[in-house]
Amino acid sequence: MRTDERLHRTVEHPTRRDLPRMSRTRVWLFGLTLASYVAIVVGVVTTSKLVTLDWQVMLWRPYKQWPQIHAFLDYFVVLGQRGPTAVIVLAWLGWRSWRRHTLHPLLVLGTSLLLLNVTVGAVKYGLGRLGPHYATTVGSSEMFAGGDIFPSGHTANAVVTWGVLAYLATTQRARRLGSVSSALLALGVGATTVYLGTHWVSDVLLGWAAGLLILLALPWFEPAMARTEDLILAGWERWRRSGLMSPVPVAGPSVVVGPRPSEEDESSREPVGAGSLGASVGQASAAQAPVAQAPAAGPQSSAAAQPVGSPAGAAPSGHHTPGRPSAVRNERTPLTPAGSRRPPVERPGRPATPLVHQQGRGRGTQT
């Protein structure tokens, strides 16, 4: 299939009818998740028992309890970093967009990452909580201290990035399998950050809630993504057509375009080379009219004008001397203003009576 046909098919959006919609169940899940999000924030700000749990786990130091898995979890936590996970998922969704002839998967990934950066980043810097390694007072919430640890970015990114694959699944079985896999992966990344001591437990809980809110709210952004896709494809189509319709300059000699001659003019026109040569010869013969119209000296002059071995009155052959332009003659000898280019041929007169015959006749008379 050619690229033009693929681009033409993308305008039709054949998979728009399969997109997830904001059902009543999804609305209820979004409401419960939002309530949990607010409850976690309030519990940390008010230094509730949730903060006490944070300190108990931090002082227990899980990385010292199980040091044998420390090296493995250092690599496993990379699955929650934004850069590596975005590259992996972008490569997969890019191939899928090319196969399905739609930009929808890429737009879903871009929209989810944009919402993640805006919402999680705003809360991080707005609350300013310090992490476990930078805590100053035991039992305090460490809020509004210039930190950027609450909620956990690794956890929220793992929920959103891997959850997008389940969101874009085309079958019910693939959607369920993707949801379970992404949930387990996000739980593992969040627990790993607590094990390594880089986040509080409440950070991870709020990161799970933040990522789930973004996934549940994606259907509300589907109309905006559809309009964006239409604008991108329409702009691409205009650019492609303008590129195909624009004239391409060709370097070369200038050609004068004139009216096309009729068939009668073409039939009466001489071949290229013959007409131009005939015109030049005609002008030369007109300038040297006394020489060209002078009577020939005799039969020898007419014979000298023809090639050797050719019969008298025959047209010259097509051979020409190298370095000189060859004149291609038409079947009819073209006439110029000076007349025909052939020199006049004089007919030889009747041969005179041989001298021997006259002498013989004279002898007979004498005798």
Rank of each mutant, 00 (worst) to 15 (best):
L335S: 07
M143N: 09
L53Y: 04
R329T: 13
A289C: 00
G362K: 05
V138T: 12
P132G: 08
R227C: 02
R361H: 04
G139W: 13
A226F: 07
E263R: 01
L213E: 09
H13N: 13
A135Q: 11
L32T: 12
Q283S: 04
V77C: 00
T46Y: 01
R176D: 11
P354Y: 06
R82Y: 06
T193H: 02
L233N: 05
R329W: 04
P62R: 01
S317H: 10
Y75A: 10
Y167K: 02
R24S: 06
L115Y: 10
V272I: 10
R342Q: 13
Q306I: 01
G243Y: 11
G147I: 08
L107Y: 04
G349W: 05
M143G: 09
T47I: 06
S326P: 08
G190K: 03
T136G: 13
R269W: 01
T198V: 14
T85V: 10
T10M: 13
I232G: 04
A174Q: 15
E264Y: 01
A304H: 07
G282Y: 02
G364W: 08
E264V: 00
S182N: 10
S276M: 12
S268C: 00
W28A: 15
L114M: 14
S36E: 10
L355V: 10
T228C: 13
P307N: 14
L32Q: 13
S97W: 08
L218C: 09
Q288P: 00
A297G: 13
Y167L: 13
W98V: 04
R173E: 15
G309I: 14
R332Q: 13
T198Q: 04
G243A: 14
L116F: 05
H13M: 09
S262I: 02
S317F: 09
P67M: 03
G349S: 05
W239E: 01
G126D: 02
W66P: 03
G349L: 04
K64A: 07
V250N: 05
W66L: 10
D265R: 02
A86S: 12
V308D: 12
A286H: 05
D148Y: 12
R21F: 02
V291S: 08
F144G: 03
A91Q: 03
Y75S: 12
M245L: 11
Q359N: 02
F150M: 12
A39P: 00
